[in-house]
Amino acid sequence: MLELEDVHASYAGRRVLHGVSLAAARGEIVSLIGPSGSGKSTVLRAAIGLTPLDAGTVRLDGAAVDYASAESLKRLRRRMSIVFQQYNLFQNMDVLANICLAPVKVLGLAPAEAEGRAMALLGQMGLADKARARPSQLSGGQQQRVAIVRALAMQPDILLLDEVTAALDPERVGEVLDTVQALASTGITLLIVSHEMAFVRRISHRVVMMDEGRVVETGPAEAVFGAPQQARTQAFMRAILRD
């Protein structure tokens, strides 16, 4: 179980999170929604230790994560992976090397075992024929699916998805959403930041509405989308439904 308790964090010198608390149980799919700049991505970045916490605590299965300790951070990142909006693939390596690097260097897998695991995942994603391609030779949707495979190759318990469709052409969004949909049935814990509201509503067990670095409302997806309790959530829902 992942818990964030009263987390404060800054980004580019500006305080972005003002005491965020939320939790995701094992196998739960939790989506963060809210207007741009509300701090959703910073929550994910703070959870995986890319944005330092100014205050607050993150717990994994009850144990507080010590972000100042390299060992603690390493343990955390063996259990938690993130997929970024811009894929963040290594441009000097082919797809297979992108996927196998961390399992070999961080998990200590033998290269052959890591490659076998990577090829199996690429096969599931319909990307087996792209194993030797460079990221620059792939479409945005393919690159994002490779990034998802790279994260999954670490066999994480928790996967953070940070606006994984935001940088894609509209016609590529579907293929990535289908991939996430397939992941949802595997029992992995997903923490999703997305502007694809219909998708969020369909896939999420629970939705967290954020605004100005604070959690405004949280509840089951149908409740938050169908009958929001807070005025800010109601206004947000009115705005996105008008779009």
Binding site: R78, S81, I82, F84, Q86, L101, A102, K105, V106, M154
Partner: peptide
């Protein structure tokens, strides 16, 4: 080298040397 690649590597738990 784009900082995003380094961030991606850090998030995977790769060491600074690697």
């Amino acid at each position: 080298v784009p900082a995003a690649q380094v961030e991606g590597a850090e998030a995977l738990g790769l060491s600074a040397g690697t």
